[in-house]
């Protein structure tokens, strides 16, 4: 896996940190890659914007912060506006379609959207929207093995909510596959994104 910088942002309570934790854990613990996760602390982390950063690589990660993300997962309008400018040209943007209105999109950015909150509500618990998003991320990017992500979900949530979270993951993953319209086969045969190495 080439070095991939991911920014996940939304508002407090959406489970932004947990989704970043699951992605990092899937890479580092279940797929033998390297992952470094950092998060915003302090006043900016309260209430409004919540943001987490994960760097995935097949080599040890040196610089710990995301500077030009390859992938931005935006789960609120504020997060979209705040972090879109730092997304790499030709980067990938994943959005919560009911919460983010796409505007001023730079040319070259690939966008995929999912009504993650609504899908989570269909499962009975709005709070699993972050895990729906992780499933969606897994299907769209094909960066990580689905099973690694699934194990990381199971390993990161309270035992009583495991089944619900696995269903949330599958729902997001299926939604992602369906939005790819069968392009997925091609994408898994090649690196899914034209990424530059940090090293």
């Amino acid at each position: 896996m080439q070095l991939t910088e991911i920014r996940i942002a939304g508002f407090g309570g959406q489970g932004v940190m947990l989704s970043a934790h699951i992605i990092g854990k899937a890479a580092a613990v279940y797929q033998g890659a390297y992952a470094t996760m950092t998060q915003s602390f302090g006043p900016e982390a309260r209430g409004g914007a919540a943001s987490a950063q994960v760097i995935l690589s097949d080599r040890p990660v040196l610089y710990p912060y995301v500077t030009r993300p390859d992938i931005l997962i935006a789960m609120s309008q504020e997060a979209y506006h705040r972090f879109l400018p730092e997304l790499k040209p030709n980067g990938l943007l994943l959005v919560e379609s009911d919460l983010v209105r796409i505007s001023d999109l730079p040319a070259g950015v690939r966008v995929h959207s999912i009504p993650a909150t609504r899908l989570a509500e269909e499962l009975g618990r709005r709070m699993v929207l972050n895990v729906v998003m992780v499933g969606f991320f897994g299907a769209i990017t094909a960066l990580l093995e689905p099973d690694a992500l699934r194990k990381a979900v199971i390993d990161s949530v309270p035992p009583a909510t495991r089944d619900l979270n696995v269903r949330a993951f599958e729902k997001g993953f299926e939604y992602g596959l369906s939005t790819l319209h069968g392009e997925r086969k091609i994408e898994t045969d090649h690196p899914p994104l034209p990424l530059e190495s940090q090293h």
């Binding site: 990092g24 580092a28 613990v29 390297y34 992952a35 996760m37 950092t38 998060q39 602390f41 710990p64």
Partner: peptide
């Protein structure tokens, strides 16, 4: 940074 970063 070392205190708050998460890794394997």
């Amino acid at each position: 940074v070392v205190g708050h970063m998460t890794e394997k």
